[in-house]
Design a protein around this nucleic acid. Structure first.
Lengths: 360, 360
DNA sequence: TAATTTGCCGTGTGTGCGCACGTTTTATAT
DNA sequence: ATATAAAACGTGCGCACACACGGCAAATTA
């Protein structure tokens, strides 16, 4: 049986103390050049591998980070992200990572700035946030760069920025996928609609990417003649307004048989739609929030694409942990899978979301 | 800041030594009843939580287990399972879990028995295996029970048995899901076929369950009139034989427009099919092996259901680890999600399969 | 009654690594 | 040559746990 190499083994063979070996292995300086090279040589020769357990145990101090999220009480999607974050924090808190949470209003760039300022005041050693407001996100990223705070961004990727990492989906590819799922059930001559139910739809990077992917699918797979239209709608909190909007939409487009809802507000569309028409219109949307799952069970939504908000949060914290405490190298872009959810497999994904586990 | 409670804190407050606290917490005996209850009381009062890091570190011994798999060199599916197992072993080996692997011939119950005997001879502290041959699997489970060896079964569940846990999919539900995916692209009056490409299709529990689920979907969702037929085929290693079998099938069933292949040999069907007919026949099959992915990319397979073999192996070892070393309670049935894989999201799942990670 | 066994519990040691804190050696300045 | 600073390096603590060992008292046996 192969015996594990300890730093003491290196120390003995190199004729130094374990402290010196540690200094060399962690580049903490104050080691004579010849001693350093000798230690490295012996470590390589013996095939040293760090015992992460003992390492984490000995690294006996706490590091505080900050998370910046839309208020999870006001939005079921961000509630899931928050859940994943909490799970991860609980898992790593005893290993020295603590976090303070800051929340902002999902529709107010100003409240984002305000919360960000609060977070920065605490001088955290790391920050996690979704760059929902492009301009404000860039400002925060600049601030973090200035103060040398590693940053994890989730949910929406942002160009011309170099955070520690991005964790989320490939928006373009999710658009392509949405197109395939709709196309599978459409026939030639029918129309489908890209529907953005959100604010700021003209500038939101991830929504534009979804649209681009959606359109590209039909260009590349031109076996069917399908017309594509795109609509934006902002007044989604007023059900009557949404109903009349959709009524107008299906009146003007007689061959409309598919809607690709680019946000988690898919349920609002399903809710109105089955009331105002008998036409079989297929719906593909996003996210496993309860309201969506209800309509999925009732076959009023055909497919949901899971953006894995809980895992985004979970992995986000885990990456800060790996970077700050385990000092591992972090992959810059970490795309999460595009889970296709239907009635039959929804329960497993929902359950998985609730039961993140950490191995040790 | 909340301070973590150590066993020393309990010892001090209860007026005993840390050794006694340890004896109580691990039920190692030799503690007077009144002292034991006092210690438990104090532990609860202080809100003690075990430091799993230090615990695992101090628990300084190795436990050997055994895994029993179909030869991964001979089958791409089991190669992935094996990969997941290796990854998990690498992650936990330094924490005291070692494993010896035993392989058998996928088509030979006798070789299964032979390998199982070899494994048992080594007196492992745990066993992991997929119960492919029903009768022989029961024999092994009985043996394990007799010798008191905790057992993890993967891939196929087995009734009337009480292993430590089962990790895999819900076969019935995967049949229902297959039906939905096919149905989404079929129209009334068309025919679809359940195709078992395997040996022992009459008795294989998971294949029968898939068929049952598949049929039940159409009973429950009778909005379309779809005829269902079922075929078995064993000579899948002879391409010419398979081609003529399929030729006959599509000749006899003019309205056949969908095939549900219940095993990972989906690619063999796709391979023959596009050669012998121009008819658009949709294919739904199982598993992300390279051959299947190739046809998925070429749009010759429409959907693949991922059985997550790698994760089955990974979680299987992890559960042995949790049970034997961390002494945690194990959930009896752990269903893995039914991932729906299409061209657009295949890459993410493939990548995830390759990059299992352990947090610490 | 003396001798032995048994139960109960404390003490000490080893396990792994990182780092604060000493101590020693070397280099620079006066 | 001496004082001071700086660099180099060793020591011990933290943490949970298993295990060996030993002491003491009570219970049992010869």
């Amino acid at each position: 049986m192969k015996k594990r190499i300890r730093i003491k083994d290196i120390a003995d063979k190199a004729g130094v103390s374990t402290g010196t070996v540690d200094r060399v292995l962690h580049d903490r300086g104050n080691v004579a050049p010849d001693v350093k090279s000798k230690v490295l040589e012996v470590a390589k020769e013996l095939g040293y591998e760090r015992n992460r357990l003992a390492s984490a145990l000995a690294y006996n101090r706490t590091i505080r980070v900050a998370t910046l999220l839309p208020n999870p009480e006001k939005d079921p999607y961000w509630k899931q992200t928050n859940f994943g974050i909490q799970k991860a924090l609980k898992a790593v808190q005893h290993y020295g990572l603590l976090s303070e949470q800051f929340y902002f209003n999902l529709f107010s760039p100003k409240s984002f700035i305000a919360s960000a300022r609060q977070a920065l005041e605490k001088k955290p050693r790391g920050i996690l946030f979704p760059p929902i407001f492009s301009q404000e996100a860039h400002w925060l990223l600049d601030q973090c760069k200035e103060f040398n705070i590693p940053t994890v961004i989730i949910n929406t990727n942002i160009k011309e920025a170099t955070p520690l990492c991005y964790i989320g989906q490939d928006s373009y590819q999710s658009g392509v996928l949405g197109a395939r799922l709709l196309n599978f059930g459409l026939t030639s001559g029918q129309t489908c609609c890209i529907l953005n139910i959100d604010f700021n739809t003209k500038t939101a990077h991830h929504l534009l990417e979804k649209e681009r992917g959606f359109r590209d699918y039909f260009v590349g797979n031109g076996n069917k003649q399908v017309e594509i239209i795109r609509k934006d709608f902002e007044g989604f909190n007023d059900r009557i307004q949404l109903c009349s909007f959709l009524k107008k939409l299906i009146r003007e487009h007689h061959s409309l048989h598919g809607i690709f809802v680019t946000t988690s507000r898919t349920h609002k569309v399903a809710d109105c739609l089955h009331e105002i028409t008998d036409r079989k219109i297929k719906i593909v949307g996003f996210d496993l929030i309860d309201a969506n799952l209800k309509y999925l069970q009732e076959n009023k939504i055909n497919f949901l694409i899971n953006q894995n908000p809980a895992e985004q949060g979970f992995q986000g914290i885990m990456n800060l942990f790996k970077h700050l405490i385990l000092k591992e190298k972090i992959e810059k872009i970490q795309y999460l899978p595009l889970d296709i959810v239907v009635k039959e497999n929804a329960e497993y994904y929902r359950k998985r979301q609730m039961t993140f586990e950490i191995a040790i």
